[in-house]
C-alpha cells in the first residue's frame, strides 16, 4: 500500500511563487527514497506537505490513503516523522532525555512507555551516555543524531530527513550513512531530502529529482546519477565515482572505490610497478 501519495499537487507561496507544480509521487512501505535538487527546488516544501504543515492548493496528498486536509499536523506528524535541517531550530530542553520525551508526551504515550522509549532511542543512536547533558552543549554531529533519535522514538511509519549532511563533517557523514543503513535494515521507510549526492551514492536509493518545483525524474540512483545533463540542469553535481564510471566508459557505475579499482584492474590487466612514477605532471 502506498504510505504517501501526491496527486497533481501544486502549491503557491505567499509571494505567489509556485513552489510545487503538478507533483505526482508515491512512496511505498519499506522504500528508501532520495529527493534531490538544488536549493530552492521545492524539496522542503514537498516534505512539509507530508505532515500537513502545508496543505496543497490544488491536488491531494494522502497519507495511508487519507487526505492530509482531514488530519491535524500532530496526527500526521505521528505517522510521518520529519527531521529538519537545522538542529538548533528544535532543541530546547534541559536534558537530552527530556528532549526525546517531549514528542512522546505530545503524542500521548503513557509515562512508563515514554521512559522506555527514550532509553531505547538514545541507546540505539549511541547517546545513552549523554542522557542528562544539555542538548545545546552537544557537538554538531551529536545534535543531528539526537534530532533523528527523538523522531524515531515514536516510531513513525515514515522517517523523513531534510538535508541531514549540511554542515556536518566527513566523520559525521560516515556515521549518518551507517545510521541510515541500519534504519533500512530495520525495514523502516526512509526519505532523504538532500543535494549531497556523494553521500547518497553508496546507498543507491530510488531517486526523485526536483527542479523549479517539479519532479523532473524518478528512478534508480544508478541511472539518475550517471545522467550528467539532468543533474547539471537541476543544480546538482555528479558524484565523482559516477563521473569516473562515465569517463572510463564502464558499463555499470561504481558503487564504491573498490569496485572502480577492481574494474580498472580487470580491464587493463595487472599493475606494472614501473609505471608508478610515470604518473602525473612528470
Amino acid at each position: 500500500m502506498a504510505l504517501i501519495e501526491f496527486e497533481n499537487v501544486s502549491y503557491k507561496m505567499p509571494n505567489e511563487v509556485l513552489a510545487l507544480e503538478k507533483v505526482n509521487l508515491r512512496v511505498d512501505e519499506g522504500e528508501l527514497v532520495a529527493i534531490v535538487g538544488g536549493n530552492g527546488a521545492g524539496k522542503t516544501t514537498l516534505l512539509k506537505h507530508m505532515n500537513g504543515l502545508l496543505k496543497p492548493v490544488t491536488g491531494t496528498v494522502r497519507v495511508k490513503g487519507k487526505p492530509t486536509t482531514e488530519s491535524s499536523v500532530a496526527e500526521l506528524s505521528k505517522q510521518i516523522g520529519l527531521v529538519f535541517q537545522n538542529s538548533d531550530h528544535q532543541l530546547f530542553s534541559e536534558s537530552v532525555k527530556e528532549e526525546v520525551a517531549f514528542g512522546l508526551r505530545n503524542f500521548g504515550f503513557p509515562p512508563s512507555e515514554v521512559e522506555e522509549r527514550v532509553a531505547r532511542a538514545l541507546n540505539a543512536f549511541g547517546l545513552g551516555q549523554m542522557s542528562d547533558r544539555a542538548p545545546l552543549t552537544l557537538s554538531g554531529g551529536e545534535k543531528k543524531r539526537l534530532c533523528i533519535a527523538l523522531v524515531t522514538a515514536w516510531d513513525p511509519i515514515v522517517l523523513a530527513l531534510d538535508e541531514p549532511t549540511v554542515g556536518q563533517d566527513h566523520l559525521n557523514k560516515v556515521r549518518l550513512l551507517e545510521l541510515v543503513r541500519r534504519l533500512i535494515r530495520d525495514k523502516r521507510t526512509v526519505l532523504i531530502v538532500s543535494h549531497d549526492l556523494e553521500f547518497l551514492w553508496p546507498l543507491q536509493p530510488r531517486t526523485v529529482v526536483m527542479s523549479g518545483g517539479r519532479i523532473v525524474a524518478d528512478g534508480p540512483a544508478a541511472s539518475i546519477f550517471t545522467n550528467f545533463e539532468l543533474l547539471e540542469s537541476s543544480g546538482l553535481r555528479q558524484p565523482q565515482l559516477a563521473r569516473l564510471a562515465v569517463a572510463l566508459e564502464s558499463p555499470s557505475p561504481f558503487r564504491d572505490v573498490d569496485e572502480a579499482v577492481a574494474w580498472l584492474r580487470e580491464k587493463n590487466g595487472p599493475w606494472s610497478s614501473g609505471s608508478q612514477t610515470a604518473f602525473g605532471k612528470g
Binding site: R243, N268, S275, F279
Partner: peptide
Amino acid sequence: VQRKLGLKSGGIALDVEDFVKEVPRLW
C-alpha cells in the same frame, strides 16, 4: 582509487578528467 591501485610516489591526478587521461600511461 589511485591509492588503492598502489600509487605511492610521484604525482597523482586530482580530478576525474586528469585521471582518465593518465590511465593509458599507467598501464
